[in-house]
Simulated assay, not measured.
Amino acid sequence: MPSKTAKPAREGRRKIVIVAYERAKLLDVCGALQAFSDARQEDGHSAYQVAVVSEAGGLVATDTGLMLQTARLDETTLQSVDTLLVVGFDPAMPPVTTASLRARLANYLDRPRRLGSICTGAFILAELGVLDGLEATTHWIVCNRLKQEHPAIKVNPDAIFVTSGRIWTSAGVSAGIDMALAMIEDDLGHLAALDVARGMVLFLKRPGGQSQFSVELRQQMRDARGRFEDLHDWIRNNLEADLSVQTLAEVARMSPRNFARVYLRETGESPARAVEKLRTEAARRLLESAHDPIQVVARRAGFGDDERMRRAFVKAYGVSPQDYRGRFGRLQD
């Protein structure tokens, strides 16, 4: 994690270089760019000099189609660089310049004090071998893919961002802003980072992990052959019922012992853990969309009491149900 002791500011401004390319995610670039651009030293002057660069320079089309003006990635733009950040791309639309960009980046990896990636930019650093043996993260959708393609990386699928020495990696898209705020706090201290967060109307430290924003639960619950999909649908429609192994086995038309063994083999988790996940997912949806008291949500989601739901919710999402509703619940009528 970042240092909790503010480091003395260097003379002048630290230089941040953000590496873009065709089809790069626009928010990956602009989120970090805005945070660093808003940061101020104690005297009120800009704390950072921020440059957006690309392999050849000039106009680069982002994933949204919006064109960004960039400088050329070369000796000049990387002179005295403090932090080098590689942004991400839409996994369904791989960037068209990654191979040649990697070759150019390889020449400069030792230059910056900090080297990092935003979102799927982790794949570019991974291809360069930078993340081998280190803990890292990326967008939750492709964490498994990163782990499979680069088994030497210790992938943390729930972290908003991860620091491993001088290497920083962040989760999907807006998490790049969280990481930028943490870097600002590391450089300039808590108050400077808090000022930026307030100006951007953001949490300085976002509670919880990626799981509170993802919708991966249905995918996690689905075994490769879809053997228990009907059972999962039945559970979702009967959350207040007795969902013991005996009951689930009867629904699945299997003996309890065989059901528990096969379920664990096919899904990678026990039936009890699966039920807890599905109940927690249902509670999350109710907290986002309904005005029911917490106790009623706990009953409707099958937890029985709010304390049992609170424990499961904190384990799954890193925040209490009350805190989650305060941040993501529907406004009162």
Rank of each mutant, 00 (worst) to 15 (best):
E269N: 03
A298Q: 06
V297T: 08
A274M: 05
Q295A: 15
V275W: 00
E250A: 14
M309L: 12
K277F: 03
G304F: 10
L248S: 05
D242G: 01
R285A: 00
R284M: 08
V245I: 09
A298C: 04
Q295Y: 00
R284Q: 07
L286R: 13
E269Y: 07
L243S: 04
E240R: 15
V275I: 06
M309Q: 08
A298K: 03
V296N: 09
G304I: 08
H291A: 15
D305N: 15
M254S: 12
F259I: 04
M309P: 01
R279G: 02
I294Q: 12
S255Q: 15
V251S: 02
R284D: 02
V251Q: 11
E276G: 02
R273Y: 13
D306H: 15
A272F: 00
D242Q: 09
T267E: 00
I294N: 08
A241P: 09
A301N: 11
R308W: 00
D305Y: 13
F303Y: 09
R285I: 12
T247K: 10
Y263S: 00
N258H: 10
L286Q: 13
N238L: 07
N258T: 14
A283S: 05
A282F: 02
N238P: 05
R257N: 12
L264F: 09
F303L: 11
R300K: 15
F259V: 06
G302Q: 08
A274I: 02
L286P: 11
E307C: 10
E266D: 11
A290S: 13
E307W: 15
A282K: 14
A282I: 10
E250F: 06
Y263E: 03
R285E: 07
R236A: 11
A298I: 08
M254F: 02
E240F: 06
L287H: 04
A290H: 00
N238M: 05
G302I: 06
V245T: 14
E276S: 05
Q295C: 14
T267I: 11
R299A: 15
L239M: 10
S270C: 08
A298F: 10
R285L: 13
K277R: 14
D292K: 13
E281F: 05
N258Y: 15
S289I: 10
F259G: 01
K277N: 06
R253F: 00
A249E: 02
S244I: 03
E266Q: 05
H291Y: 14
D292M: 14
F303I: 12
L287R: 09
V297Y: 11
A272C: 00
V251H: 02
R299V: 12
S270Y: 07
R236T: 09
A272N: 03
L243T: 00
L278D: 02
P256I: 01
S270R: 13
